[in-house]
Simulated scan of single mutants.
Amino acid sequence: MTVADQRQPALELRPPRHRVAPRATRYWAARAGAGWLLLLAVQVGWWVLAGGATGWRAAGVVATVVLGAAHVTVMPRWRYHVHRWEATDEAVYTQSGWFDQERRIAPVSRIQTVDSERGPLEQLFGLSNVTVTTASAAGPLKIRGLDRDTAERLVDELTRTTQANQGDAT
């Protein structure tokens, strides 16, 4: 066993244990729905300003409604089943995405900062995000859609754990 093996526990990339808050599905649906409604409003406005119905405009509106409804219905549930997180004394694990899925791990000894943030819509849904920054070229680990209390506990726990860890955070 080398000196490096003695210092760092063996970490394996694995699925994290915890799901995000169930309310995250309503938040994701609301965000997606707002985008589809904006597109639909532009299409209907164009339709009215252009002087009425044509086959192509009507087909475009119908396609927008069908695709939007499918997206708002399927995507939040799919994301909820994929998005996971876990923090241990050794590492932070994340899994996110829905089409393009990503699984990441950051050893606690490499953590440089831990932040939380809530946008206006997230505040409305009682959700928070936690960002764990490391020196990794892949960028920070983001845990989105946590219950506000869970996010606060996670930030406190990671802050205590990283302060107690003697790693060099590089």
Rank of each mutant, 00 (worst) to 15 (best):
W46T: 12
I143K: 04
S136D: 09
P120H: 02
V44W: 09
G52T: 12
A58K: 10
W36M: 14
A34K: 14
H18I: 07
N165S: 07
A63D: 12
I111N: 02
V155Q: 08
R153T: 13
T2Q: 01
R23A: 09
L13Q: 12
A137K: 12
R153S: 06
L127N: 01
W28M: 05
D89T: 09
K142D: 04
A106M: 02
L146M: 11
E102I: 10
R84I: 10
W85Q: 06
I111R: 00
G68H: 15
T2P: 00
G55L: 14
T162W: 11
Q112M: 03
V108F: 08
E102M: 06
W56P: 00
R17Y: 00
R104G: 02
A58S: 12
T170V: 10
S116K: 12
W36E: 14
G68E: 15
T159I: 06
H83E: 14
G139T: 15
G60E: 14
R110T: 05
M75H: 06
T159Q: 08
P9M: 07
L154H: 01
R84A: 04
V42A: 05
A21I: 08
A87M: 13
A59K: 13
H18D: 08
T25D: 01
T88Q: 02
T88S: 01
R7V: 11
S128W: 04
Y93M: 03
G51C: 10
Q123W: 08
V61G: 00
G45L: 03
E90I: 04
Q123N: 07
Q123H: 08
L40G: 06
E102T: 11
A4I: 11
A10I: 09
A29H: 07
R144L: 12
S109F: 06
E117L: 05
L38V: 11
R110M: 05
V48G: 00
L11V: 12
T131E: 13
W56Q: 01
W98P: 11
L124I: 15
Q8C: 00
E12I: 04
A10C: 02
Q163V: 11
V155H: 02
V74E: 05
Q95H: 11
Q112F: 03
W78V: 05
Y27M: 03
V108W: 11
R26Y: 02
R84L: 12
W47T: 02
G33T: 14
W47I: 01
A50E: 04
A151G: 02
S128M: 06
Y93C: 00
V42S: 01
W56F: 01
I105A: 04
A4T: 13
A106Y: 00
A32F: 05
V155G: 00
E12G: 01
T133S: 11
L121H: 01
T113P: 07
G52M: 09
P107A: 03
L37Y: 10
V48K: 05
P22K: 06
R144F: 04
N129A: 09
T131Y: 11
A169H: 10
S136Q: 13
A4K: 11
P15G: 03
